[in-house]
Amino acid sequence: MEILKVENLVKTYKEGNDEFNAVDDISFSVEKGEFVAVMGASGSGKSTLMHMIGGVDRPTSGKIFIDGKEINTMDNNKLAIFRRRQIGIVYQFYNLIPILTSEENITLPIELDGRKPDKDKIEEVMERLGILDKRNSLPNELSGGQQQRVAIARAIINNPTILLADEPTGNLDTGAADEIVKIFKMTNKNYKQTIMMITHNPEIAKEADRILRIKDGKLVKEA
């Protein structure tokens, strides 16, 4: 079942009188439960692609369907709600709220939705990710790996349709990076979580079911 479909996606930036396409007419789809890696050189447009799929940025043209819903036509309000319910995003620099504890960071999407967090579920997720003992810690009291795990927990707490990760291991040492990749793998395998991950690391990319290569804004080869 197609969970993500991208049709003729274009993102254009203007520099004075010049224009350039950061994403240049990309089309592809992702099946449910697939683990897709996205690779490309710096400035190739992979992050731009990821941001548009995550509803964080708007395409210049083209369509994006997530679970059958076209997200590029949604207004900001609807998109925000969709994002917190259906999409999980993990960033390279964690993007945690510095004044919330780990647990509060994790329950943030739920509370934004006006719902009460399920304590048991939160504990289960935190335990799965090995951060239960850090539930009351602030982000600056955690190591990079721990912060990233908190970010992952936040991303998956709502059982999103798709989990997007933008170089989640880019800021971590090898050991921590391996752990994160394992978590992704585990989530994908055990929970059939659809994952799309940007990475520079070919070793990490090998863990994915499929690799999308982006070069100069265009999809080059699927592997």
Partner: peptide, 15 residues
Amino acid sequence: VLYGRLATMGATPEQ
């Protein structure tokens, strides 16, 4: 930055 992060988490403009 905080508001931006909240927006990425799904906070609506109204919120």
